[in-house]
Design a protein around this nucleic acid. Structure first.
Lengths: 300, 300
DNA sequence: GGTTCTCAATAGATTTTTTCTATGGTAATA
DNA sequence: TATTACCATAGAAAAAATCTATTGAGAACC
């Protein structure tokens, strides 16, 4: 008997389906089959009744599950005490700049692997904190952008913190504006078009170097500036004040509502949006799944 | 964290010495070192303070040990419920004919590996039951003798039950008599000498074929027969009735007392005393240690 | 003050265990 | 009848545990 076998067992029992449980556990179905079978053989009991419809817990299996839960409960106390997180619970944390596709991918991950016990975090935060979170393993993964302007500085920060950057997509700059903005009728916008309107940007804390800005072209002069920390607030101000923000142009109506629209910005610049990971540690299965989901929702 | 690591941990804490604990656990010392270290790294704690004098539990280690014991307690409940034996407890069972060296080796094993939780059995029983116990895994090992007379029959029984026989030693037949017996003065005895005295032998149950007798020469006629099941009873009768019994001549004063003496028996026969094991299963570490101890105490 | 002893740590090889991929078999479903 | 959704099996591959041999460090001994 190993703790691993017991955890597998519980998942199978909860799922009612070996194949599905194996997927949740990030192992191949035959591995799970043999782990469970080994447990059954060790104690000479039949925990599950197998059929081509899935599995069903036998009465003696039910009794065994009771014992198994007791063991795991105690084992989880150790995890809680010494790691601060429950092992029974899945644990996952993303630190990111404010992109809706990050949230979309996150939702997908939750739906697929959340189960009935989890603790997932989305930390939409300042650029430097993303780097800090990932390098100190507070977050499994970070999401940020590089462009010609900030690349050298950011890449150095990544190197210094033992992180690697992987590109998700390259985006042409867009401007987010409210759908009733005077600019809404244009096909594309220039910096000159934007000049009279308030510019919205995310606060970058003490590291308020331009290099850590979430928006490109932050060095361009602007008379009206609004600085916020929250994406919803930003959107509210965008609409209320006829403001704008420069970004990757990834927009999702469901998430951002129909009141925000994106317009191409006519400048010779780009944003290379990607994720960062600690270079020395292999990403967890869950992180790998999240990256898959990111690639699914991320389009330039 | 694995259950194995936790069990190792407890043993180390109890033993206060990695090297010694490794021996008790039947693993190499570096294996233990790395198992413990892995546990400490996983939770970022120092459980033991190492020195060249051994190890010492730190205060935070003490706390962790508390948690560990809780987990193992629950895990042991499973073992108890489904295997009838505690895994925390060492479990060992010998089935044997009535030889004092079997008990001596058993005592040595207990002293060395008993620890503070164990369940050890000595089943001094009838020859056929020895074979039955070992083949049905009720006992780890069995001890019995072969000679020219019973060898063919016993070896067939062993084969039929998937057992193998390994010789411990070859003994010339001796006679056990009380120290005050009229025969005590002789250097050696013949069958004729014994004729007038009661012969003691062990009961062999329903399989009372001569082949399963514990004593050689059981086919020789005898007028006075006493059949017992207990070694102490046999010795009592030996003394009280001036009886005799034919055996391998292995005698230990500490165990059998000064009232029993062994005399060589002048016959052209021998006893090949050895142990039997299931051929398909590799003997446990404890069983291997027991065999070592048997070899130490067994002399023809 | 050097030598020996005891015990834990390290290195590298080896064995064992776990997990994987690919495939088979079975019963329900379309 | 073909397809689908399961779990089981076999053999290869990867990962983990364990082993032997050796090092290193401090205490005890002479």
């Amino acid at each position: 008997m190993t703790l691993k076998q017991l955890r597998y067992l519980i998942t199978v029992a909860e799922t009612g389906n070996m194949t599905e449980a194996a997927r949740k556990l990030f192992i191949a179905q035959p591995s799970l089959t043999s782990a469970i079978r080994e447990l059954e053989n060790e104690y000479g009991i039949t925990i599950f009744e197998r059929s081509n419809k899935g599995i069903e817990v036998t009465p003696e299996g039910e009794e065994f599950l009771g014992y198994a839960r007791q063991v795991l409960e105690q084992a989880d106390l150790i995890e809680e005490r010494y790691t601060g997180s429950t092992k029974g619970k899945l644990h996952f944390c993303v630190s990111s700049q404010h992109y809706s596709f990050v949230v979309e991918a996150f939702v997908e991950l939750l739906k697929e692997f959340g189960g009935d016990k989890y603790e997932f975090h989305v930390r939409e935060t300042q650029t430097y904190d993303i780097i800090d979170d990932v390098s100190h393993l507070r977050s499994e993964i970070g999401i940020l952008y590089l462009n010609g302007f900030n690349e050298t500085v950011i890449r150095k920060a990544l190197r210094d913190n033992g992180l690697v950057f992987e590109t998700l997509f390259r985006a042409k700059p867009h401007v987010f504006i409210g759908k009733d903005s005077p600019l809404a009728s244009k096909r594309s916008l220039t910096l000159k078009d934007l000049k009279p309107y308030p510019r919205l940007s995310y606060e970058q804390g003490s590291h308020n170097s331009f290099y850590f800005s979430e928006e490109i072209l932050s060095t361009v002069d602007c008379d009206k500036e609004l600085i916020v920390r929250d994406r919803a607030t930003l959107f509210n101000l965008l609409i209320g004040m006829n403001g704008y923000t420069i970004c990757s142009g990834v927009i999702n109506e469901e998430l951002n509502g129909p009141n925000i629209i994106a317009k191409p910005l006519k400048v010779d610049d780009y944003m290379e949006i990607g994720y960062i990971l600690p270079s020395s540690i292999r990403p967890s299965h869950l992180t790998q799944e999240y990256i898959k989901a990111l690639r699914k929702f991320a389009r330039g």
